[in-house]
Amino acid sequence: MADAVHPEQDERDLILIADHITIDYEVLAQRHGRSPAERIMSQVMGRKQTIHAVKDVSFVLRRGDALGLIGSNGSGKSSLVRVLAGLQRPTRGAVWATSTPSMLAMSGVLMPDLSGARNIRLGLLALGMTPDEVSELYPKVIEVTGLRESIHLPVRTYSSGMRARLKFGIATARAPEILLVDEALGTGDSRFRAAAEARLAEIQSNAGAVIVVNHNANTIAETTKTCIWLEKGDIRAVGPTADVLPQYEEYLGTHRRG
């Protein structure tokens, strides 16, 4: 919302509006009874408890933006980004965008027991490409992932860095208009990170936008210019990354480590 303070100024460059997003989870309160019977009873009879993961968050994104979303574990940033990608319904609020953002997440490979090659084909088809387009893009994606011979091994056997490269290759095979990157850049070696950052910059310069989600200040500093700091579901600060990060780090320093 760095430049969302006066969103009415110019609607032409708008690419995404997050409008008053609230995400609640209903969970059963688990009490730690002394006997197994008590614990079972609390499972069955336990009162439902509402967890407010994200509270009334709004911001806009414009063409060329790179927005950082930072916050400690459990701040609600992953829930928020899943809602932005349409993978989860918000409890209240709306997400408006030119096209559904592509999400690149740490969790979930398409089919972990199948080879990287098959996952690439499947992923590209799921993004709506025709078999011909897939065949055309396939060599390029292989090159981006740098997986070489490992491409024929089951994804289950990959290291987390290799998985990150695989998913990055799939999600950016055809540059999406809006790319959401949830923690996925943290893994992988420096060469991959350089390639990934170049790809993010390319999306921005093609009039797209990226949102980078991370708990690591360095990653946010390297990839974004504006930044939202989310803590316990609330926006704690918005502004140029260089201004927000010191506040976040100071907070982390005083709240070691919940």
Binding site: E8, E11, L14, D19, G86, R89, A94, W96
Partner: peptide, 15 residues
Amino acid sequence: AAALARQAGLHRVDQ
């Protein structure tokens, strides 16, 4: 927000 979004040619992606 909805009016602005429509002006800018955006559509709902959360449903």
